[in-house]
Design a protein around this nucleic acid. Sequence first.
DNA 1: AATTTTCGATTACAGTTGTAAACTATGTTT
DNA 2: AAACATAGTTTACAACTGTAATCGAAAATT
Lengths: 139, 139
Amino acid sequence: MKEIENMTKAEWQVMRIIWTLGEATSKQVIEVLERKTEWKQATIKTLIIRLQKKNFLKADESKRPYVYHPQVTESDAIHQSVNNMFDNLCCMKKGKAIGDLIQNSDISKGDIRDLISLLQEKEKTAPETVKCDCLEATA
Amino acid sequence: MKEIENMTKAEWQVMRIIWTLGEATSKQVIEVLERKTEWKQATIKTLIIRLQKKNFLKADESKRPYVYHPQVTESDAIHQSVNNMFDNLCCMKKGKAIGDLIQNSDISKGDIRDLISLLQEKEKTAPETVKCDCLEATA
DNA sequence: AATTTTCGATTACAGTTGTAAACTATGTTT
DNA sequence: AAACATAGTTTACAACTGTAATCGAAAATT
């Protein structure tokens, strides 16, 4: 599994489109991104090339124009990115940070119910308190 | 309120220490970080200087050695960082991403209970489904 | 086949980040 | 006061990012 930590914000935009479409030509990516950003075509091509170098995308060169395929799943990318971000946080603050996310995200009723049962399950074995480890040697 | 988007992983490590201590000398920061990382003192000093340039820290120069004070609260930083990361995600995937975080984080019973009630409240007005916006012009 | 259009590759260039050594100024000990 | 130690400042340098222009190759049109 690739290291996704180094997927930048701009690269995420490109990947989202290709994940959603399943596969895509540069033209398809450019069409979408010219609507949602101010980027020039050349910029978007550069991003695609960098994503190939990082092995997040692979071009099927048997077809012309090339068709780009994701080499990482969206779930893996999301998993790694959000957890990587959370590694920055004081572990004592993670609960509240999740609360912040819940408040600021649109979530479907179904997902909310799933989260509630997950939490109910987790509560059973949850610690009474979580200690700050910001000054500890535990990296 | 400052833009925290550009606080790097390394800088986060420094800030966490100073937030936890309330204020700190470079020496205090160095002591902690030499235990948790492989960084040399000079590296840590560089980070502190960059944090000053970005206005995340301010040195009280009336004392020697300088005492560094945070210019952003930890909550603001967390709020901005996690939401900024979530902006990268397909809105349809955010619920699951939160589930992933819940599974991978230690959370206290109290926080879990808070999250549950937050979710129960949110469920009342939650949409049945959230649509993917990855191809939309809504940036 | 010649021309035009499209698409991919190469090059560019400034700013940021990780990582740190070296230099300087200030404070402390002899 | 001199010497030593500590802390702050300057400089360094490669890799990565944002942002794109330009050049060359392939495909489509005339």
